[in-house]
């Protein structure tokens, strides 16, 4: 398999350091306190946020901060093969924890003691990079729910195939078995909130891949910020606070 031609084009026609097209819409669900659909290429993730509300299980309550519950699930129709995927399989459980850990560092939990925030993430279409897309969707949903955030957390993956560092792997590239480094970043403070990689890489190559992924995160973050601003402006206009 040739993942990057000598002319420097990937299978889908991107160059090695290009992201897929990004799209998102906010407040897509009426029932949730905040919700968002985030799309990276053909990966499409829906996130819904409920809360902050009273803690359901009393002994889990934290006196000094909010607790975050996260549930990641893949829709049966999200991959080419239709398979019932629960929220309880190992992969989903792991991803729920990963997303939760990233969000706990992003939400200003200390401002909301004795509360609980529920984040539901549903993968509608999977084409590689679902975990970072899930984080992006969740952060957008939290923002639209008005939960106080330290910073945006933007996720992006990068990999290394055939001697090239590749940004934002799609499913085909992801299945090549090379290293896939998923990270999430607070762009303003330049703080990593997630770093995961399977397979092995020499240190110097890893640095290059990590830097590439960070650049990707910054690009994703600026896209998210811009969309959030547009959305807020629209809301403000609807309330008459701002004139068009």
């Amino acid at each position: 398999m040739e993942y990057v031609t000598p002319e420097g084009l990937r299978i889908d026609g991107r160059r090695p350091k290009e992201l897929r097209r990004l799209d998102c819409s906010l407040d897509v669900l009426q029932s949730a306190d905040g919700s968002a659909v985030f799309q990276m290429g053909n990966t499409k993730v829906l996130a819904a946020v409920f809360g902050p509300h009273e803690v359901e299980v009393r002994n889990q309550m934290k006196e000094d901060k909010a607790i975050i519950k996260c549930e990641y699930a893949m829709a049966a129709f999200s991959t080419g093969e239709r398979r019932k995927r629960g929220k309880s399989d190992r992969r989903s459980q792991e991803l729920s924890l990963v997303i939760k850990a990233a969000l706990e560092q992003t939400v200003m939990v200390e401002l909301l003691p004795r509360t609980q925030i529920d984040v539901y993430v549903q993968v509608l279409q999977a084409d590689g990079g679902t975990r970072v897309a899930a984080i992006n969707a969740a952060v957008l949903a939290l923002a639209s729910a008005g939960v106080p955030l330290r910073d945006l957390a933007a996720g992006c993956a990068a990999g290394y195939l055939e001697g090239h560092s590749l940004l934002d792997l799609n499913f085909q590239e992801d299945s090549a078995g090379g290293p896939d480094c998923s990270i999430a970043l607070h762009p303003n403070s330049d703080r990593l909130v997630l770093l995961q990689m399977d397979s092995r890489l020499p240190m110097d190559t890893f640095e290059a891949v990590l830097n590439l992924a960070q650049d990707g995160c910054r690009a994703v973050a600026s896209f998210m910020r811009q969309r959030l601003l547009e959305h807020t402006r629209k809301l403000a206009m609807a309330r008459g606070a701002v004139r068009a």
């Binding site: 299978i11 889908d12 026609g13 991107r14 897929r20 097209r21 290429g41 053909n42 080419g80 093969e81 084409d127 799609n170 085909q172």
Partner: peptide
């Protein structure tokens, strides 16, 4: 951007629809 769609038969004999992105530059 354009999506390439095609139908593929897997090794197990299932018919599956494959969608791949195809960027035009």
């Amino acid at each position: 951007h354009h999506n390439n769609q095609f139908v593929k038969k897997t090794k197990k004999g299932q018919i599956r629809k494959v969608v791949r992105e195809h960027y035009l530059r």
